[in-house]
């Protein structure tokens, strides 16, 4: 897809994010807005997905297709919107986000059988392990497609992440592209103040990963280019890590760059102000 078209999808996804979070007065808009380019670029450009008549055909095993895992599950709004616009489920379902009897739980789950989701996430630090397992299964099945996983930067404080970080290079899981959303924010404040991750690139390199960086993680062209760059390095015995610099709350001026919008919903006025900055391109749900 052309960059301009991807940007149009991203604008709609951002509208959906603020509307979903506003609709239930709950959820995490900041990280969702910041990761919009990553998820749109993955699903609308990078990933090979099984389709019939232009719509995804979802099955749990995902053989012969690329798989995506969201480890920082609290940014579910961006994933739900991307999945809905991709055609996994009706976009009207976004109106049920975080409400009783919904398949769009606060954090993504398989429990309600929402198409596109392969494991529950949200208890941080677990997604990369699952992605590694799925990548190993692909190797055992002689399936040459790729497994992607996105984590948060605050999430790097979880110990299990580093168990997985040791495991993947040791077992030469070279069909895996992991990404970290480097927005520098977490619930209690800037990551530098809460718990300094130091140099994540050097850390992952020391663990045996091939590390690349996307400096402008909210520039669609840069994200698309970075993903292709990562893909070109697969298959050489090492897993790939992409450090993606993003702005929390990107796309809505008053939400940008602050941890205050990590897990807070906009009120009616704030919603109107946010939507005024985001063009409706694919039709609201």
């Amino acid at each position: 897809m052309e960059i301009e078209q991807l940007e149009k999808v991203a604008s709609q996804v951002r509208r959906d994010i603020v509307r979903m979070v506003h609709g239930c007065q709950s959820g995490h808009p900041g990280g969702s807005l910041g990761c919009t380019e990553i998820l749109v670029a993955l699903y609308f450009e990078q990933m090979k997905i099984k389709e019939e008549n232009g719509k995804p055909v979802f099955d749990m095993n995902g053989e012969g297709e690329d798989l995506f895992f969201l480890s920082n599950g609290h940014i579910s709004p961006v994933w739900y919107s991307v999945l809905a616009h991709k055609g996994y489920f009706p976009k009207e379902e976004m109106a049920t986000f975080r409400k009783l009897n919904s398949r769009l739980q606060g954090h993504p789950t398989t429990h309600e059988h929402l198409e596109g989701i392969r494991i529950a996430s949200g208890s941080l630090g677990q997604g990369m392990s699952a992605a590694i397992g799925a990548a190993l299964a692909k190797k055992l099945n002689k399936d040459t497609r790729t497994v992607f996983v996105l984590m948060g930067d605050g999430e790097q404080q979880e110990g299990q992440v580093w168990e997985a970080a040791s495991f993947a290079p040791h077992h030469e899981v070279d069909n895996l592209i992991a990404m970290i959303d480097l927005n520098g924010q977490q619930i209690d404040g800037p990551t530098l103040k809460v718990m300094n991750n130091r140099d994540l690139g050097k850390k992952y390199e020391a663990f045996g990963w091939e590390v690349i960086t996307i400096e402008e993680g909210n520039d669609m062209a840069a994200v698309v280019k970075g993903l292709y760059e990562a893909k070109s390095r697969l298959g050489h015995g090492r897993p790939i890590m992409i450090l993606v610099h993003t702005g929390m709350g990107f796309g809505v001026d008053f939400m940008m760059g602050s941890h205050k919008w990590h897990g807070v919903a906009p009120n009616d006025e704030q919603l109107a102000a946010a939507l005024g900055q985001l063009e409706e391109t694919l039709g609201d749900y």
Binding site: Q126, A130, G133, L136, A137, L140, S166, H171
Partner: peptide
Amino acid sequence: VQCGISEANMIGVSAGLTIGGK
């Protein structure tokens, strides 16, 4: 799959292996 002394990761990798029919 030797996981080393990393039980949390072992459980997660196991969950992932089921995606793919293992």
